[in-house]
């Protein structure tokens, strides 16, 4: 395969109070296998929308462009098919599922994905063992598996729970939407280590962030700056440091 994630001319809009609002205005982006790419950009530039569109959220209407994943037309797939194909989205604001036990949720998800990938399902004992180890590696309190999904979790706990899910679902492509926000330094390191453990020639990630801090741990391959629904600038890791020091204004002015 040439490029494993290939986005070209992607446009998307949302219906907001009866008004169609264009958010993505022609995103071009390709991510080769094994690389970690970063998207930075001011609020409202369309970063989260891009992650939702890639994961298949139905509120967004794709009006133009393509996105292929492992050569498949990503945009034609149901959200769960994308998940089974190896795409994982760590939500910026993880959703609470009242009454749904976290371990049960994780096992249902893992087995659904395993089934789709032609793997044998895990029994409760095997799964729990695996989940406990993964949770421990993320320094999560043991009772987090027993609690309801994200209900009553602190901001940091929610983010760790996302990384736990990612670890267990073993995606080949992960989108981390501001997974570092609301984390203290220690939690940030633990989360970054969680991502780093997945790094392999067959694993890529798209990291949405505002901060250099996470990138100190993750060491990205490429940085993209997004503004007004497009990627306006791409470069090496030094670009992130530059933005961290100088802000976006200069770059936006240059492009405009």
């Amino acid at each position: 395969m040439s490029q494993f994630l290939e986005i070209s001319g992607l446009c998307a809009q949302i219906d907001a109070d009866g008004q169609e609002k264009q958010i993505l205005r022609g995103v071009d982006l390709s991510i080769p296998p094994g690389e970690v790419h970063v998207i930075m950009g001011p609020n409202g530039s369309g970063k989260s929308t891009l992650s939702y569109v890639l994961a298949g959220r139905e509120d967004y209407e794709v009006t133009a462009g393509t996105a292929t994943f492992h050569g498949q037309n990503l945009l034609a797939m149901e959200p769960e098919e994308r998940a089974a194909a190896g795409l994982f989205l760590a939500f910026q604001s993880p959703i609470e599922l009242p009454g749904v036990n976290n371990a049960n949720f994780l096992r249902t998800a893992v087995n659904a994905v395993r089934r789709a990938r032609g793997l044998e399902e895990l029994d409760a004992v095997a799964f729990l063992k695996m989940a406990r180890e993964a949770a421990k590696a993320l320094s999560m309190a043991p009772d987090m598996l027993k609690r309801n999904v994200n209900v009553g979790f602190s901001g940091g706990e929610k983010k760790r729970n996302e990384v736990l899910q990612m670890t267990l679902l073993q995606p080949t492509f992960a989108i981390l939407d501001e997974t570092d926000s609301g984390l203290d330094v220690d939690a940030l390191r633990i989360v970054a280590e969680g991502v780093n453990r997945l790094r392999a020639p067959t694993f890529s990630a798209l990291v949405i962030t505002h901060h250099q801090k996470l990138l100190d741990y993750l060491v990205p391959d490429r940085i993209h700056v997004m503004a007004r629904g497009r990627i306006i600038l791409s470069g090496g890791p030094e670009l992130a440091r530059q933005i961290d020091q100088e802000g976006y204004t200069k770059f936006l002015a240059e492009v405009a």
């Binding site: 994961a55 769960e80 998940a83 993880p94 959703i95 599922l97 998800a109």
Partner: peptide, 18 residues
Amino acid sequence: ISEDQLFYCRQRGLSEED
């Protein structure tokens, strides 16, 4: 049923029915 919850579960690989 909240669309957010449905989408979250499906992003984790669950069928809509599940």
